Simulated scan of single mutants.
Amino acid sequence: MIRPTPEEDAEITAAALSDPDNPPLTDEDWARMRPAREVMPPSFFEPVTAPPRRFFMAEIELDVAEHFKKEAGDDWQARINDVLREAIARKEAAE
């Protein structure tokens, strides 16, 4: 880690103090601080169990997309994922 020089630190501090959108915390602000576990719902601290989603582009014929939009409405992309997973499971079961 490269630490700023005292001059750079002073310049950074002056810029931060002059930012009207981010005023420094007062002693009263610090006195009102509470641990996150006291103010956030317990679900906030539960581990994320779903795998992270990764996106990519795929060409889907218009008639196929329209079918899923008509069938599933706003969840049409999730429905396509479900159908593809079902096809994968059937293929793996047949092997």
Rank of each mutant, 00 (worst) to 15 (best):
T13L: 10
P24G: 03
W30V: 15
R85K: 14
R54W: 10
T49P: 03
A58S: 12
P4Q: 09
E38K: 05
P42Q: 02
A89H: 06
S43K: 03
R54M: 08
E7P: 03
D82F: 06
K70F: 10
R3C: 07
R54G: 02
I88H: 00
D9L: 15
P41I: 08
A10S: 11
A14W: 04
T5K: 06
P35F: 04
I88M: 04
D74K: 14
D9E: 15
P51I: 07
A50C: 02
N81V: 11
F44G: 00
K91G: 05
T5A: 01
E66Y: 01
A36K: 15
V48Q: 06
W76N: 08
P6V: 12
P23H: 01
K70V: 11
T49F: 08
F56V: 04
D21P: 01
F45M: 00
R90E: 11
P20N: 07
I60R: 00
E66R: 14
Q77A: 15
D63P: 01
D19M: 08
A94I: 03
D63E: 12
I80H: 05
E86W: 00
A31D: 10
F56E: 07
L17T: 05
T5L: 02
A58P: 05
A36D: 13
E8S: 07
F45W: 05
E28N: 02
E38I: 05
F68K: 06
E38M: 10
T26W: 08
A94N: 04
D75N: 10
A72D: 10
A31I: 02
V83E: 15
E28G: 07
K70T: 15
P6M: 05
M33P: 03
P23V: 07
E61P: 04
E86A: 11
A31L: 13
A89R: 13
M40I: 03
N22R: 11
D75C: 02
I88D: 00
P35E: 08
D9H: 14
D29H: 15
D75V: 07
L17N: 09
W76D: 03
F56T: 12
M33V: 13
E61A: 14
F68T: 07
E95P: 01
T49D: 09
E46R: 04
E95R: 09
E46K: 09
V64P: 10
P20Q: 06
M40G: 04
D29V: 12
E86Q: 15
Q77M: 10
M33N: 06
T13R: 15
L25C: 15
